[in-house]
Amino acid sequence: MRFAFAGRCSTEDQQDPESSRAWQLTRATALVAPQGGEIVTEYFDAGLSRSVPWKRRPQGGMLLSALKDPHRGFDAVVIGEPHRAFYGNQFGNTFPLFVHYGVSLWVPEVGGPIDPDNEAHDVIMSVFAGMSKGERTRIKVRVRTSMGAQTKLEGRFLGGRPPYGYLIVPLGPHPNPAKAAEGKMLKGLVPDPVAAEVVRRIFREFLSGLGLFVIAEGLTRDGIPCPSAHDPARNPHRTGIAWSKSAVRVILTNPRYTGHQVWNKQRKDEILLDTNDVSMGHVGVMRWNPADQWIFSDDPVHTPLVDQETFTAAQELLAARGRGPQENKGRRSRNHYIFRGP
């Protein structure tokens, strides 16, 4: 029999894609070779999460399309590891296509081809797919819990762009021995000699009564580069022409200027790609968390640019200037529109 090998290596794996492909292919070959089988083609996806369904995987999608072709060049498909091939309900959404086109699916855990009429085979594959989903969920919970503890108890900088006004510097060897052996360093924030004073100026001017737009205009007029122009290498998607009102607001609302490390300001939600076709799976969407869900370090861990009293006063002033119910009267217009609502 001629076989197509199907495999996947995700971004979550700690081994390189070539090593992952090699051991999965070796396992698949060990299953079909004693039966006179030969692997004649491969469909291996690298760098994809297991949660991505087959039809959205480049190689997996090509394999599903090849099933329809009577001249496909292979008689059956073999996978090396069901945990990496199927996730959640993917087996139930994918295997019927193999049955429909008469292509058998071989799995090491079954010891050969999956029998569509064998209830035990269906249960085994469903269990492996469920275990795969559970494993990914456990990893996410473990990582998020660990990052929260590292922020709160250690005040560790967990990556990302530094806030305007700070620079990232190495603080010493990474506390993880394996990463330290690779030369990776623990990093932290130190004040930017130029931008730190701009941050302090923004807080002073705002608390003196100036509005966000006036502050932004003043910074631009004085020739002070806006955050994207100050660090263009980290902001290649922005023009950096001038300061904006939103840039000033972001600075005024960032609690890291008080010296505390902050994490969990955003989260990644997984939502259905197509509500009319659940088999298309989910996509990740970044959303803001409420402020009461942010995690702060217990103690200051880097040099503050403003004290806590100044920051709190700025938040209270921002809230007081916010649009209240009595101010929500709509936008005035010099023209009268007959279809305009009340």
Rank of each mutant, 00 (worst) to 15 (best):
M1I: 05
F5M: 00
A6Q: 07
E12I: 03
Q14H: 11
D16E: 09
P17R: 02
E18L: 08
G36P: 00
V40L: 03
D45Y: 08
R50A: 14
S51M: 03
M62I: 01
L63A: 07
A66F: 05
P70H: 10
G73R: 02
V77A: 11
I79M: 10
F86M: 10
Y87M: 04
G88N: 09
P96K: 09
L97K: 15
F98N: 14
L105H: 07
N118H: 10
E119A: 15
I124L: 09
A129T: 07
S132D: 06
K133G: 07
T137G: 09
R144L: 09
S146H: 09
M147T: 12
K152G: 01
F157M: 12
P163N: 15
G165L: 09
G172T: 12
G172E: 04
P175G: 06
A178D: 13
M185T: 07
G188Q: 01
L189D: 11
V199G: 07
I202H: 11
G218R: 13
C226I: 00
H230A: 07
H230Y: 02
A233I: 11
N235Q: 06
H237C: 03
R238E: 08
G240A: 04
A242K: 15
S244N: 11
A247C: 05
T258E: 10
I271V: 12
G281T: 01
V285K: 10
P290L: 02
S297Q: 12
D299C: 14
H302C: 10
Q308P: 02
E309P: 01
A313R: 12
L317M: 13
L318F: 05
F339S: 14
G341F: 09
G341N: 13
